[in-house]
């Protein structure tokens, strides 16, 4: 056949087919998405610090293990309150002539998704300790340590941010661990990663492939959430699996008067809205509100914390918690 014996025609045809398809499935959709999508009204641009932090995030290849996309499937619910939308990435553009745009959506989740990490783990102290060596706060973590983002100072000045690193992790180096600017920028970037609220009246896209509800209802108890796994997902990274916290950073729950005491209202309030009353410890974020917990989750966590590590507190029911939640909301409304 003439086509097959003429190299110009043959390779011209192959190149034409490939380039044509490329324009159809890559270039046109890319240009359309780039032009059509606009950032959400509530979206805030990155602060100058966060921008520098993002550059450090990119330089160290963090995207190799951390995705930044909540897929519209039920299993991704733990990473955000809604699926990520095209609009969430619309404001991401080239930062300089040398590098490409970095949406940082990622293709592998060896570590947790970071789309909403600013809500899930807003504590600067936790993030700094975790960056210095993740295994200080999460024993099972395999994330690299980034000690080169920190300095050692014998006498830190007042403006220095001192990180409370246990002696076993400083390898006998003298002085206090002080966060460098780079570390602070990186944490600023992580803190800025929050899912933007959709404008009022917009219908939230649904999560697909819902987990099938357990059909065999042997009792109401089986429908209650599992306190242990809720604790592991949302509390353990600071308060630790043994409930002992981290001295100088995160308070223990083991033997805590708030956990085992009678002031249930304060206890629920801390879980839902965070706490920053004790200067010797880092501030706690509004974990419950961020995670959109109902009385069922809160009751499960309280019951787990009250019955473990030697704690022996009174168990609570979701009904009791509901009353308190309503009261707290009422108080907040005023």
């Amino acid at each position: 056949m003439e086509l097959f014996d003429n190299h110009k025609k043959l390779f011209g045809a192959a190149a034409g087919l490939f380039v044509g398809l490329t324009i159809l499935v890559a270039i046109i959709p890319a240009i359309r998405n780039q032009e059509k999508n606009k950032p959400l009204p509530a979206a805030e641009p990155l602060s100058p610090q966060a921008k520098k932090g993002k550059a450090i995030f990119v330089a160290n290849g963090c995207v190799a293990c951390h995705t930044q996309q909540v897929r519209n499937v039920d299993m991704d619910k733990m990473w955000g309150s809604r699926p990520s939308l095209a609009a969430d990435y619309a404001a991401v553009t080239r930062t300089d002539p040398w590098r490409n745009t970095a949406t940082l959506m990622g293709t592998e989740r060896t570590g947790p998704d970071l789309t909403d990490i600013g809500n899930r783990q807003p504590s600067r102290d936790w993030n700094l300790v975790h960056l210095y060596n993740p295994r200080i706060v999460v024993k099972e973590s395999i994330m690299p340590a980034y000690p080169w983002l920190f300095d050692f100072k014998k006498e830190p000045s007042k403006s220095d941010i001192v990180v409370n690193v246990p002696a076993t992790y400083t390898k006998g180096k003298e002085g206090k661990v002080v966060a460098s600017d780079a570390a602070l920028y990186l944490v600023a970037y992580l803190q800025s990663l929050k899912q933007v609220k959709l404008p009022g009246g917009t219908e939230t896209p649904v999560f697909l492939y819902k987990k099938e509800e357990k059909k065999a209802t042997t009792g109401a108890a089986s429908a209650e959430p599992d306190g242990k796994s809720l604790f592991a997902s949302s509390c353990q990274s600071c308060h630790q699996a043994n409930g002992e916290g981290l001295p100088g950073a995160f308070p223990p729950l083991k033997g805590s008067s708030i956990v085992t005491g009678d002031n249930l209202e304060l206890y629920v309030d801390i879980i839902m809205n965070g706490y920053d009353a004790r200067p010797e410890y880092a501030a706690m974020a509004a974990v419950g509100t961020n995670m959109e917990w109902t009385e069922h989750e809160v009751a499960a966590i309280i019951n787990y914390e009250r019955t473990n590590w030697g704690n022996n507190g009174k168990k609570v029911t979701p009904e009791e918690i509901k009353k308190i939640l309503d009261f707290i909301k009422l108080k907040a409304a005023k």
């Binding site: 490939f18 270039i27 619309a90 553009t93 745009t101 970095a102 949406t103």
Partner: peptide
């Protein structure tokens, strides 16, 4: 031929903003 085409498509900046980057 194809590897040259894809390298050009991947590195030319005109269609790389927002989700364009992901599609490319």
């Amino acid at each position: 031929i194809f590897v040259i085409v894809i390298t050009i498509v991947a590195y030319v900046p005109y269609w790389q903003n927002g989700l364009g980057e992901t599609i490319i």
